[in-house]
């Protein structure tokens, strides 16, 4: 009940943020722009629309998660609204979870709106709705959930600008960490390999949520991949939220 109340209040606060609509506008422009790109392309034009559209959803979705996530907790601490809120019979973990779910609800609605524009553009080109694309969108949402938890974690102890830089770094590292796996295969056993192995274990691998190529090119996806990626997303998000809660629990609100 308390988490729900905080989540809905966070949602009310988040949808009033103008930056959200600015990003939504740019995402829509990018998705519509994919139609123009497709006109200039030789070959399968639908694939270009899907490719650019999904990339836009992913990029702007993550940008929304970072910009909103890093500001929300910090704003509460900075404006001291947290003092009266936590003076009520509310546990600190309920506050963090409320903020998280409120943001997730906002991002879900924003992603749905972006997907609607995207599906509309595809429909005008093919006169059919490729529902399989929604698999990729679902995993983009899972990635957004993880990035949101990371943004909230950083905003528990840092300013919005620094938190945004940290969260963006996490996103970039997450999309390039798969290359460590390639290095591991080529490395000889030893201290170096162990270190790289440890690094690879702890660094996020956000490519687990990337099903864009498979969906666009109609490649087969092993069913266990869905399970593995979903479990990875849920556990990683849960783990990051747990750290955020532990840090938040120790904080003094001066």
């Amino acid at each position: 009940m308390k988490i729900k109340a905080i989540a809905f209040n966070t949602f009310k606060e988040a949808i009033r943020d103008r930056i959200l609509y600015l990003l939504l506008f740019f995402a829509a422009v990018c998705i519509v722009f994919s139609r123009i790109l497709a006109l200039l392309t030789v070959g399968n034009k639908v694939k270009i629309i899907k490719d650019v559209g999904l990339a836009s959803l992913s990029f702007f979705g993550v940008l929304m998660a970072i910009l909103m996530g890093t500001g929300l907790v910090y704003k509460e601490i900075d404006k001291k609204t947290i003092c009266t809120l936590l003076s009520k019979p509310v546990r600190r973990y309920q506050f963090i979870l409320g903020k998280f779910f409120g943001l997730i609800l906002t991002l879900f609605i924003m992603l749905s709106l972006m997907s609607l524009v995207f599906l509309g553009v595809v429909f005008f080109h093919t006169f059919s709705i490729p529902w399989e694309i929604m698999i990729s969108v679902a995993f983009i949402f899972l990635e957004m959930c993880l990035i949101t938890s990371v943004a909230i974690l950083f905003s528990c102890f840092s300013t919005p600008i620094l938190s945004s830089i940290f969260s963006l770094s996490f996103y970039l590292i997450g999309h390039f960490s798969w290359s460590l796996e390639t290095i591991l295969k080529k490395m000889k056993p030893g201290v170096g390999k162990t270190l790289v192995q440890i690094l690879y274990t702890f660094l996020p691998d956000l490519e687990n949520f990337n099903f864009k190529t498979e969906v666009v090119h109609h490649l087969s996806i092993p069913p266990q991949s869905y399970f593995y990626s979903t479990a990875y997303g849920i556990f990683y998000t849960g783990f990051v939220l747990l750290i955020a809660i532990l840090i938040f629990k120790k904080r003094d609100f001066v």
């Binding site: 009940m1 729900k4 109340a5 209040n9 009266t84 809120l85 009520k88 019979p89």
Partner: peptide, 11 residues
């Protein structure tokens, strides 16, 4: 909103 945070109050 705050009344929803207090268990002894009806929202």
């Amino acid at each position: 909103f705050y009344s929803q945070l207090c268990p002894n109050l009806k929202p």
